[in-house]
Design a protein around this nucleic acid. Structure first.
Lengths: 260, 260
DNA sequence: CAAACTTGTCATATGGCCTGGACAAGTTGT
DNA sequence: ACAACTTGTCCAGGCCATATGACAAGTTTG
């Protein structure tokens, strides 16, 4: 469940990198970007490959090219406007943001070994597997794959998943979530996830895996989330007390408008 | 032959799909998988393409192939073993792990607009900029770009940066770090960072930006860190109390051995 | 104007990806 | 033994990705 991106065409990788640098304002719009020859050199790639990447950037309006004059970056929006949303991940949709959830699949299956270990169940146990995509203002920003032990999952219906957060359903069903562990990492969008998040294959995604236990210690939820970094970031505020750093608050930060 | 989802080679996409199905136990290990012809048909792809996917699966030990007999799926590998290291980010190197730091650059420069805003200084103020790469067991895992106001930075030397964490230096220099904000996101490795982290250009990296204030409220450090996700992950433990999730501890999780 | 940049266009060459088909070699079940 | 499966191997050909080089055409600067 952990994996690579694989072999992307060169011109596409160069495109992704240039787009990232443009978005960061690496080249002010009034100064020309490095020439094609120079870009080719710094990326260790032929000029034709650079041109393919630049042509695509031009098609998308991220760059303005004039023969003889040069290539000029056009950073999309003025400084990124963000709506800062206090609250933990699950509370995101309880807030003002209108998020829409699409339920892509909902099945009871035999737990593959990795998932079984994650849920601390015997291999082959029946588990409920659901896949959802969550959107703000019609733009998808998270892809969620959740695993729940069968007897816990049976207490709610598939339609509920499209309306309320999983943790609420678990609580309403009599479970008592008490502790959670999250691991935050990064991975590339693969051919399955990319179209669902409306992102290019090979773009970077925030990768969060969470395990939730109830008071007795039993794992009642294992969830894998992939977030678009342009739409969603993770914030942590720390305070230093008596020479030790301590967490003050944890925050999810979602953009008001998609960057592109 | 069929639809699109991105510019991945066909054989690689088939490989990903088959690997996923194997991991989910779609074919019990004692029964043969569908033959190459059948797989070619169901995936809408030529037999040679199927073979390339299967050959890779065989190399990785996920399937067993015997001429005349068929292809048999094999139970996936046991989960990765990790050394779990408690402690906040800056404490990582204070722990048992022997991390080595290489100082790549150290200058006093005029702050570019973004950095000035980040440090809450007037545009063009002089700041100390340093770039470091940190390694465990001779494998680099983090790339750090730090910005410090000039008058704060003058209180320590470049050589100190190669030996002690920046926060220690700031404290030793009389600063009083009190609060910090971290933003966690994801980005791609570009041509500059990739070789330093010994990673392919275009691979995903964990992207952390941190701003540290001292007691008076002044920003004394702005730092941008890029981490290899196979070497370093971010963990957060949450506890639910009175219906609200609270952060219990924050943890950096580094692998004992690089995955590759 | 002229030199020195820029992007646009073209031709050529190499190698990887992918298809279609044919055939060889091994295994299994009747 | 035989038929019917399987995987292993090879070929011819087309398309695409990529590198290299040369040249045309536009812009900027002195």
């Amino acid at each position: 469940m952990s994996d690579d991106g694989g072999p992307l065409p060169l011109y596409h990788r160069v495109y992704l990198l240039l787009r990232q640098q443009i978005a960061e304002g690496a080249w002010p719009p009034e100064l020309a970007m490095p020439g094609e020859h120079e870009l080719a050199e710094t990326h260790g790639v032929s000029r034709i490959t650079i041109r393919r990447a630049l042509q695509r950037l031009e098609q998308e309006g991220l760059v303005l090219r004039r023969r003889g004059a040069g290539t000029y970056a056009r950073p999309p929006q003025p400084p990124k406007r963000r709506e800062n949303l206090r609250g933990l991940l699950e509370n995101l949709l309880a807030m003002g943001l209108r998020t829409r959830v699409r339920l892509l699949s909902f099945d009871y299956v035999a737990a593959p070994p990795e998932v079984a270990a994650w849920l601390e169940l015997p291999i082959g146990s029946v588990v409920q597997k659901s896949v959802r995509v969550r959107s703000v203002k019609n733009t998808p920003f998270s892809h969620l794959t959740a695993w729940v032990p069968a007897e816990v999952g049976r207490r709610f219906r598939a339609e509920d998943l499209a309306e309320r957060p999983l943790l609420h359903l678990l609580e309403a069903a009599g479970a008592h979530p008490a502790r959670a562990e999250q691991v935050i990492s990064a991975r590339l969008a693969d051919a399955t996830v990319a179209p669902l998040l409306r992102v290019e294959v090979g773009s970077p995604l925030l990768w969060v895996r969470r395990q939730v236990r109830e008071t007795g210690g039993r794992v009642i939820e294992a969830i894998e989330a992939l977030y678009r970094p342009d739409m969603y970031e993770y914030q942590i505020a720390l305070v230093r007390e008596d020479g030790v750093w301590d967490v003050q608050r944890e925050t999810a930060d979602a953009e008001a408008e998609p960057a592109v």
